[in-house]
Each structure stands twice: as structure tokens, then as C-alpha cells.
């Protein structure tokens, strides 16, 4: 599975600059809205599903080399956060769907924790 397939199948909006998403493969999936838990619990290279849109998601994603952050329930990071994500090479994806639904679909696609 690659990030492009995830974007297509889950109908995600790409908030940051496009990349060669076909060549990026997530190692695993993780979810939490508490950034301290993400820092302690997410594996390197994961896809991270959260409804937290605060600017600190970029710092945490960069630290863990998260392959993509899926921001759920239509929560929208501000422009400064999106700029910072572009600078750091962090991919931010958005969906109006809930974290529960997104995680279920990722699991169906074969992604595991």
C-alpha cells in the first residue's frame, strides 16, 4: 500500500504540496489526539490519524518521520501550520469523516498497528 492509494480510496484532500505519494509506503497506523502519546507511541513511518489540527502536529510528525497525518472531522490547520508542514516535508491530509471510519478503512486496506 502506498500513500497515493490511501488518498484515492479514502477520498482525502491533500493540504500540503504534492509529492510522489506512490513511492511512499507507510510502515503502520497509529491514532491519538494527545500529542505526548503520539511522541511515545507512534512507530516511525506511520500514518497518524487525529482530529488535532494544532501547529504542534507538524513538529511531532517531523520528529517521528510520519508518512502522512490524516486530520479528521474536517478540523482545519491554519495556514502557518500548512506552511511549516511544507518546510518540514510533512504531508497533511484532510477528511470530513471521523477517525473511527478512517481507521476502519485503513485496516480494511491492510494497514496494521
Amino acid at each position: 500500500m502506498n500513500i497515493q492509494q490511501v488518498i484515492d480510496q479514502l477520498e482525502l484532500t491533500v493540504l500540503t504540496e504534492p509529492k510522489d505519494f506512490q513511492s511512499i509506503q507507510p510502515s503502520a497506523g497509529y491514532t491519538s489526539d494527545l500529542l505526548s502519546c503520539v511522541m511515545a507511541g507512534a512507530a516511525h513511518g506511520s500514518i497518524w490519524v487525529t482530529l488535532q489540527a494544532h501547529g504542534n502536529i507538524v513538529a511531532v510528525a517531523a520528529l517521528l518521520e510520519i508518512t502522512a497525518v490524516i486530520i479528521t472531522e474536517g478540523a482545519m490547520p491554519d495556514p502557518a501550520t500548512i506552511n511549516k508542514a511544507n518546510q518540514e516535508g510533512v504531508t497533511l491530509l484532510s477528511t470530513p469523516r471521523s477517525s473511527f471510519e478512517i481507521i476502519g478503512r485503513l485496516w480494511e486496506m491492510g494497514l496494521r498497528a
Binding site: 489526539d33 500529542l35 505526548s36 502519546c37 503520539v38 511522541m39 494544532h54 504542534n56 513538529a59 511531532v60
Partner: peptide
């Protein structure tokens, strides 16, 4: 703040 946002926001 530290649990929810992991670190003190830069700005």
C-alpha cells in the same frame, strides 16, 4: 498543555 500538545508551541 504538555500531554495534549506534546511540547510548548513555538509561538
Amino acid at each position: 498543555l504538555l500531554a495534549n500538545l506534546g511540547l510548548i508551541p513555538e509561538d
